[in-house]
C-alpha cells in the first residue's frame, strides 16, 4: 500500500518537474516583457510600456506576418486540396513517389531551400524585394502539411465508392467535388489550415534569408529586437507572438480530437407492418 503511494508520488513529481522544465522559461519570458527593469527584478514593478514600444516599432511586422500566413493558406488550399484528391484517386506507384517528393521541403533545411530560391529568382528585382518572395518560401514549406492532412482524411473514407454513388445519382465531376469530396475532408482541410497558418506565422529559417529590411516578418523582427534592443522589448514581443499563436494551437487541438464512433446494433428482426 505504502509503496503504491510512493510510486504515485514519484510519478507525480516527475511529471511536474517535466512541466516546469517546459513552462518556466515561457513564464519567465512573459514576466520579463512585463517588468519595468529586468535586471532589478519584479520589485521594479509591472508595466505595459515594453508591449506598447513593440507595437510602435514592429506593428508592421505583425500585420505582414498575418497577411503572409493568410495568403499562404489561400495558396496551399488551392494547390494542396486538389493535389491530395488526385493522389488519393490515382493510387498508383507514381503518386506514392510524388507524395514522398512533396515531403522534401520539410526534410531539407530551411536555409538550403531559401538559398535555392535566391539563386533561382534573386535576379528578379521587384519580386526579390516584395513580400511575395517570402510567400513562395512559406508555401514550399507548408504545402506538405496541407497535403498530408487532407490525404489522411481521404484515406480513411472510401472516396471512390462515395463518388460512384453520387455519379449514379447524376452528379457530374464538379458537383461531386463540391458536394461530396470537399465536405467529407472538411476536418483534414481545417487541421491543415491551422497548421499552415501556425507554421507560416512562426517561420524563421527561410524568412531570415528571404526578407529585406522592408519585408520583415514577426519572427525576423523578434530576432532583430533580441539582438539590438533591451531584453524587455524582446520578451514583450514574444508575449505578443504567444497571444497570436496560442489560440491557433488550441483550435488545432480541438479539431485533432477524434470523433467518437457510435456503434449501432441492428434489431434482430426489423419492425414490420
Amino acid at each position: 500500500m505504502r509503496s503504491h503511494k510512493m510510486l504515485f508520488g514519484l510519478q507525480l513529481g516527475f511529471t511536474l518537474a517535466v512541466c516546469a522544465f517546459l513552462i518556466v522559461p515561457v513564464v519567465l519570458s512573459i514576466l520579463a516583457g512585463l517588468t519595468s527593469n529586468y535586471f532589478v527584478g519584479l520589485e521594479s514593478g509591472l508595466t505595459l510600456r515594453w508591449v506598447f514600444e513593440v507595437w510602435d516599432g514592429y506593428r508592421d511586422t505583425i500585420f505582414r506576418s498575418i497577411g503572409i500566413s493568410l495568403a499562404c493558406l489561400l495558396v496551399t488550399l488551392v494547390l494542396g486540396v486538389p493535389t491530395a484528391y488526385v493522389l488519393t484517386r490515382s493510387g498508383s506507384r507514381l503518386s506514392r513517389v510524388v507524395e514522398e517528393l512533396l515531403m522534401l521541403p520539410i526534410a531539407v533545411p530551411g536555409l538550403a531551400t531559401a538559398l535555392a530560391l535566391i539563386s533561382a529568382y534573386g535576379g528578379m528585382g521587384s519580386f526579390r524585394t516584395s513580400w511575395t518572395f517570402i510567400l513562395v518560401g512559406h508555401v514550399l514549406f507548408t504545402l506538405p502539411f496541407m497535403v498530408r492532412s487532407v490525404l489522411a482524411v481521404l484515406a480513411s473514407i472510401d472516396l471512390k465508392t462515395l463518388e460512384e454513388g453520387a455519379a449514379s445519382l447524376g452528379a457530374g465531376f464538379r458537383q461531386r467535388f463540391f458536394d461530396i469530396v470537399l465536405p467529407n475532408c472538411r476536418n483534414g482541410i481545417l487541421a491543415g489550415s491551422l497548421m499552415v497558418v501556425t507554421l507560416s506565422i512562426g517561420e524563421f529559417n527561410l524568412t531570415w534569408l528571404l526578407h529585406t529590411p522592408l519585408t520583415k516578418t514577426l519572427p525576423v523582427g523578434l530576432a532583430d529586437a533580441y539582438a539590438s534592443l533591451r531584453l524587455e522589448i524582446g520578451s514583450a514581443y514574444t508575449l505578443i507572438f504567444l497571444l497570436m499563436i496560442v489560440p491557433l494551437l488550441l483550435a488545432l487541438q480541438a479539431i485533432a480530437r477524434p470523433r467518437r464512433k457510435r456503434f449501432i446494433r441492428d434489431d434482430p428482426v426489423p419492425e414490420s407492418t
Binding site: 465508392t161 454513388g165 455519379a167 447524376g170 458536394d179 465536405p183 467529407n184
Partner: peptide, 27 residues
C-alpha cells in the same frame, strides 16, 4: 454513369456521411 439514369445500391451502401438521411435520399 451520370447520364444513364440507373439506380445503384453498393455493398458498402456509399451513403454520404456529410448529409442526413433525407439529404441522401434527396441528393
Amino acid at each position: 454513369i451520370e447520364l444513364r439514369n440507373v439506380g445503384m445500391v453498393f455493398q458498402s451502401y456509399a451513403l454520404f456521411p456529410n448529409m442526413t438521411v433525407a439529404g441522401n435520399v434527396g441528393y
